[in-house]
Nucleic acid binder design. Structure first.
Lengths: 373, 373
DNA sequence: ATCCTATTCCGAAGCGCTTTGGATGTAAAG
DNA sequence: CTTTACATCCAAAGCGCTTCGGAATAGGAT
């Protein structure tokens, strides 16, 4: 049978008030009583009805994360880690994370609906844009949230972010240190906060080294494997291809590495590659990728959980910031310019691509039939 | 200011009861009154508080889907489609879908917790196992759910499923029709309902054609790209490799195709491949994959939404079933056995793999250094 | 003996909605 | 003119919990 506060308190000979307060850790209840109550509650399997509790307190103890579903993959491999960390971190505070799916075109309406129906206490806003309408909405409505990635707005707001600019800069500086000058970047749309920042880091590193920016080495690519593939393909098909490339996200990174492989080039020797954020461990690759590592997703999630709790506890939002420092993890996909040069001068080491008759081919030169048809 | 039933009804000079009933479509309120109420509600921006409504009705209008997060990808590309369809279908009934993340090891506890705290009206249980403890739990607790994929249990329960056996059978029959005899399968762990069914279809097709089952052509692979890659690699490294392979899931499919590519073999000529469920459109591939198509994820989701609504409306669960028929979509990755034979006899057309000296190589024979270290 | 101060407990009022079981008024039926 | 039958509307009782504002009891201080 259903045991609620009423039955519990009656069976204990106490008032509902006292039982409730005992269970919720108020100090105005004797320790002995509290123990009795707790034991009885456990014995009878009492579980406070969260619906009732919510109505009474106005809180839902749930954090929302609206997730726009397109028909492709459901986020990258980092996303899963972050969610896992977030879940765990929130659990410590007896809170739940809810992922609320939405069609991409009605994302804003979904936010509005969730706010109106008070289904969550706060949001976590991911994949922030430089100008983010979701954050504008949340600020206008005065609804608590934590931005996962910064954005541009006058009003203060709480955020978690990585030092993307520093990370990209480190990566490019390393490539420069290896002797590279023709350094390309494949970046996600610059409307994304992270892409804009990483791009800025790329430019800063070049400028600091006195390398003039070459716009033809800058490839704007959608956030997808396919786009990364196409972009890398295009870069390598040039008559004067870059000797090094920074790919600013792991999805495009997978595609870019694929393109390099399809062209029979060997990363680290024929061309140097650094992938921001690495690639999913579930991608079969014969080498370790050089990458810029951010804090692991789990740690990120845990930290964000703390932050969102702080937000809900009324800590001034202008004070809730965390900037995680990235780290460069050298792998086998970057190397000194010399080796690339040597390779370029030497006879073909890499065999011809499939379907093409073998021929000496210093570097990818001819435009191969693109798989993207 | 906050407008609730009380203020609304007072401003209208009506009772809360009438306003509530007017808004909720009861027939015992005059049409004129209903109109007045609705207009006022719209004008004042009245939104019934779902928390209060839930407490009163006991329903949450939310369907839950607990999702175990491992640190890798967040589901395959079909998952996103299904969720999208589900969301849309539920929206028609003013219901929401909630994805509830959990650590894989505590999945069952998460179910229990959600049930205890009555956060959702019903669950959708995905990735069903042949013997599924989650379904056992839900049945024991008498909690409504819809299984996405069948399972083994005595008690009747509602499910949505694909005719996996027929699908696999069709695929293998096609390969047989193309002349193949040495047909391998790379399958997910058979504890998965879909894998067991597809495997059964594979065996049935072989048997019907009088081909003796060869256990060495049966590869058990985790549900991942990497596992598919390794499995295919192993199959092709044999001295007597198969001439055709059925891969029973799209994740392993990507890996398998990758392995074939890395070995410089051309699918459809050197070896025939059919991937159950196709591969993500975001994978760069120079050919169209032959695959077994199930209903699109969107349609699947929509159908499931209807089903779960039926469950909640009390339709007998033993009557809520849907078996979707798969369809074979021919692509370029399968072909007649002859071509494979011809290729095997002819001089090497495919160049040697990178890092290995070119040599005539009829078919993948020597074990290449595996990228999986 | 009286007054204070803790300490511990509890009555009752919500939170905002749904729903049961009438109450009221009006028109059709007898 | 009284009944009966609808058609409308509403008072009040929950749903199960939290919390405000005391109340009661027991010591200690005066």
């Amino acid at each position: 049978m259903k045991v609620n506060l009423k039955t519990l308190s009656e069976s204990l000979g106490l008032s509902q008030t006292t039982v409730s307060r005992a269970l919720n850790g108020y100090t105005d209840v004797a320790e002995a009583t509290r123990r009795r109550v707790k034991e009885a509650a456990a014995a009878m399997g009492y579980q406070p009805d969260p619906l009732a509790r919510r109505l009474a307190t106005g809180r839902t103890d749930t954090i929302g994360m609206v997730f726009p579903f397109n028909a492709t993959e459901f986020g990258d491999h980092r996303f899963g880690e972050v969610v896992a960390g977030l879940t765990e971190g929130l659990a410590k505070h007896n809170m739940d994370l809810n992922i609320i799916p939405t069609r991409p075109e009605s994302e804003l309406e979904t936010y509005a609906r969730i706010i109106d129906t008070r289904r969550v206490d706060a949001f976590i806003v991911g994949w922030t844009q430089v100008h983010d309408p979701r954050i504008a909405l949340l600020q206008r409505r005065g609804f608590p949230f934590l931005a996962y990635g910064r954005t541009q707005t006058d009003k203060p707001y709480p955020w978690f972010d990585f030092d993307n600019e520093a990370g990209a800069r480190m990566a490019v500086e390393r490539l420069i240190g290896l002797g590279h000058r023709r350094i390309a970047i494949i970046h996600a749309p610059l409307s994304f906060n992270f892409a804009a920042q990483r791009f800025a880091g790329y430019l800063a590193a070049l400028e600091a080294a006195g390398i003039v920016r070459d716009d033809s080495l800058i490839a704007d690519a959608r956030l997808s494997r396919l786009a990364g593939y196409a972009a890398m393909h295009a870069l390598l098909a040039r008559s004067d291809p870059p000797t090094a490339v920074l790919i600013d996200n792991n999805l495009a990174g997978v595609g870019a590495l694929r393109a390099v492989g399809d062209l029979q080039l060997r990363p680290g020797r024929d061309i140097s590659l650094i992938v921001y954020d690495g690639v999913s461990p579930d991608i079969p690759l014969p080498y370790r990728v050089s990458w810029v590592e951010q804090a692991t997703g789990e740690r990120t999630g845990l930290k964000m959980a703390e932050q969102i709790v702080a937000v809900l506890n009324g800590k001034p939002v202008g004070r809730i910031h965390h900037l995680a420092k990235p780290r460069l993890v050298p792998g086998e996909t970057d190397g000194p310019l010399d080796s690339a040069m040597a390779a370029a001068g030497a006879p073909a080491v890499a065999p011809a691509p499939p379907q093409a008759a073998p021929e000496p081919r210093p570097r990818a030169r001819k435009k191969l039939a693109s798989p993207l048809s």
